[in-house]
Amino acid sequence: MLPFLSFLLLDVVTASYTEPVTEGAQSTCSSPGLNGLPGKDGHDGIKGEKGDPGQGLRDLQGPPGNAGSAGSGPKGAEGPKGAEGPRGAVGPKGDRGERVECEFRKINAEIAGLQSELRGFKKWVLFSTSEQVGKKYFVNTGKTLSFNAVKCSQFHASVATPRNPEENRALQKVAKDIAYLGIIDNKTQNRFLDLAGNRVQYTNWNAGEPNDTNNEEGCVVLLLNGRWNDDVHCHDSFLAV
């Protein structure tokens, strides 16, 4: 832009010097010319090389991001059981409530033991006063009841029915009184049955028995001499064995 301006000024100055001067006229000075218009911008130069990285401080690390969602893969196999850990230290001594509970447990255990001994003693007394024939035990209950009451009693045994002379003698020895036998006189069938409904095979009737004097279903009792009598009403009370 400067060379162009110089050229323009020079041209103006040259013109001012070549202007003719009229004789007798006063000399005048010319004013400087106006600046010219600015020139056009030139083309961009070639891009320079990349500069060296700056030497500023590195910024601080940002906070950790949110945890990701759980994966959808299959559950892995269960690992082997670990070794048993060491035994822990002995705990503090319990309070009075625990000691009382412990004492109650001991007392209950002692009571259960005494009850067991008592049951054993009762069995010993029972069987020491009984008579055994084979696998049977003939026991005197010490109670006089009607026949139906004997059948429904809680002796956990059946009314005695001797099957042979040995059992009949054992029953006589235990009873020591008139006692019911587990035999019923079935008048409709004219035969004697045990409590299971089976016909009695062994009998030991007293003289003149059975005589069917009651003409109705009756019960059979064991007499003091070991013989049997069928002339008994089942509602009468006799010893239960």
Rank of each mutant, 00 (worst) to 15 (best):
V21C: 11
G113V: 02
T141M: 11
E78M: 14
T161M: 07
Q26S: 14
G82D: 13
S6E: 05
V150C: 15
D212M: 01
Q26N: 15
E49A: 06
Q154R: 09
A70P: 12
V125L: 14
G68I: 09
K135A: 15
V90Y: 10
V133C: 12
D59P: 12
N148P: 05
T18V: 05
G113C: 02
N140Y: 00
G82V: 05
V139E: 03
Y137D: 14
A196W: 09
I183A: 04
P64S: 12
G56N: 06
K47Q: 14
G48S: 11
S116P: 00
G68M: 03
P210G: 08
P210C: 09
D177P: 00
T18I: 02
A109V: 10
C152L: 14
E209Q: 12
N190W: 09
N229H: 10
Q201D: 14
K93G: 06
R58D: 11
A207D: 03
R227D: 14
C234H: 13
T213D: 14
F192A: 04
L57Q: 11
S72W: 10
D236K: 00
A207E: 01
N186G: 01
A149T: 10
E98S: 14
K40G: 15
G42V: 06
E78Q: 09
E217I: 09
K122E: 15
E209W: 04
A207F: 00
V12S: 07
T18D: 08
R119G: 12
K75T: 09
K106F: 09
E98N: 13
G142L: 05
S27W: 03
T203G: 06
S237I: 10
W228G: 02
R99I: 13
G182V: 06
G39I: 13
L37I: 08
G208M: 00
I111C: 05
T161H: 07
V200A: 04
H233R: 11
G56L: 07
I107M: 10
N198I: 02
I184P: 01
A77I: 09
N140H: 09
K106S: 10
C29Q: 13
G134W: 06
V13M: 08
T22S: 15
D236A: 08
L34F: 11
F121T: 13
P162Y: 11
P38W: 00
P53V: 07
I184Q: 11
E167P: 02
L222F: 07
G142E: 06
T161I: 07
D44P: 07
L223F: 07
G88V: 02
T161G: 04
C29V: 15
C234S: 14
K173M: 04
L181Y: 06
T161N: 08
R119M: 13
L145W: 01
